[in-house]
Design a protein around this nucleic acid. Structure first.
Lengths: 227, 227
DNA sequence: AGGAAATTCCCAACAGATTGGGAAAAAGAA
DNA sequence: TTCTTTTTCCCAATCTGTTGGGAATTTCCT
């Protein structure tokens, strides 16, 4: 990966776009950039040498492997552009948190937290963007938590698909098409239900004409309903 | 409230203790400090003029009033020292989020986000503390979310009491004593169950000898179990 | 002290979702 | 292609926790 490509990818990431050309080139020189295969794990580094990752292309699944092996909890599903890793910048490894690329040729750009801390301190303009980003993760989780409390499984699935369509859907004619890089099991792990229920409910939505789906794609039939 | 008291309270807050004396006095001059009664609501400000609050003494309950009136969801219960308000620093009001003092003479110190943004930008050393704090809120919520997914009501209640004891318990002889400023309904709102279940389970724990409780206090009998 | 409001307490019936059985279909590997 | 693994699919039994009834108790207000 050439230095120019690194610069290009970093510049396109909204968290870093506010940097001056000079600062951005400095950042690019210490950044590590990597193309990750589908299914490949992305390391958070060792305790004391943790990293912070910028997802510049592709999708990433964040899982929590601290609990039972059966029925893993999916903490988040990220679409570019986003960040993940040791967001506290403290060098602490997070509770058995793992990241895995969901798409082929996922591109990740990463810094040691110590390097990133320096960059943050030298660029006060970036600080607010960082606070905003971490806070937005907090709020998204607050909403998801509230959904888990108040909604039943079906409504959680619908809410999940809506959000998915918003962040990653393509309008094609009078439909919204999603590339389906998730299994029923992934969806179940995200909305906290069983694979069986996800399957049953998707069939229900299909029968009632709200969507079509196969292993590759999901088509949402009525954009108004799915808004 | 005198200027000296403001300075004193701000200096004692870990998020602000890294400031130089000079910077801290400047901060104190723009801060607003207020003593809040039990049950009193704490305003987040108006859209565009939101505030960020430093809880310097007392307990505060953060609720989400966007859903049904019945069975409110309690987003968090804060013990001093902590921060809350518009953590994204964007001037956006959060989804019907409300804050309410749970203790008498709760002391809150607050800034306009625009003032606080300036303070952050002028004090790079504070930035990391802020990121760390917001990230710790994110992680606490991640754990709570996982508890809601994997644990049954009883284990969630036990986990809740454990955390409560850790952040706010006093060791008295071979017991841990908690000042009980929460109703069964509050606890239910926090662990996402019904008042009835909280009551049933607390009685169960009492019968099995793990704790004693009345409206004022909760005593945990076996510190080893509750660790 | 007396009355109103909030909180705590109890029980039985019900509902939504899980569990655990197993089978078919698709994807990936060799 | 053929074999293996993963994913999708279905059904019936079961269960956890809620709902909604109402009563007792405590706190707060005057």
């Amino acid at each position: 990966m050439s230095e120019e490509m690194k610069y290009f990818y970093l510049k396109n990431h909204p968290m870093l776009s506010s940097l001056t050309e000079q600062k951005l080139k400095e950042a690019a020189s210490v950044a590590k950039i990597r193309t990750v295969y589908r299914g490949e794990m992305i390391s958070y580094g060792e305790a004391g040498y943790t990293r912070i990752h910028f997802l510049v292309k592709g999708k990433v699944k964040i899982t929590d492997n601290s609990s039972n092996t059966e029925n893993e909890l999916i903490k988040d599903i990220l679409t570019e552009p986003d960040i993940f890793g040791d967001l506290g910048l403290e060098g602490k490894l997070l509770n058995d948190e793992c990241a895995e690329a969901l798409t082929a040729n996922t591109i990740i750009c990463s810094f040691h937290v110590s390097e990133f801390r320096r960059i943050l301190e030298e660029n006060p303009s970036m600080v607010l963007g960082y606070a905003k980003k971490v806070n937005s993760k907090l709020q998204r989780l607050e909403n998801r938590h509230a959904d888990l409390v108040f909604l039943d499984t079906k409504d959680r699935l619908i809410r999940f698909i809506k959000n998915w369509a918003r962040s990653d859907g393509n309008r094609v004619g009078d439909k919204i098409v999603l590339n389906n890089y998730l299994t029923h099991s992934d969806i179940a792990g995200f909305i906290a239900t069983s694979r069986q229920s996800v399957n049953m409910l998707l069939n229900e939505l299909r029968t009632s004409g709200l969507l079509c789906y196969n292993r590759k794609h999901i088509e949402l039939n009525n954009p108004i309903v799915w808004n």
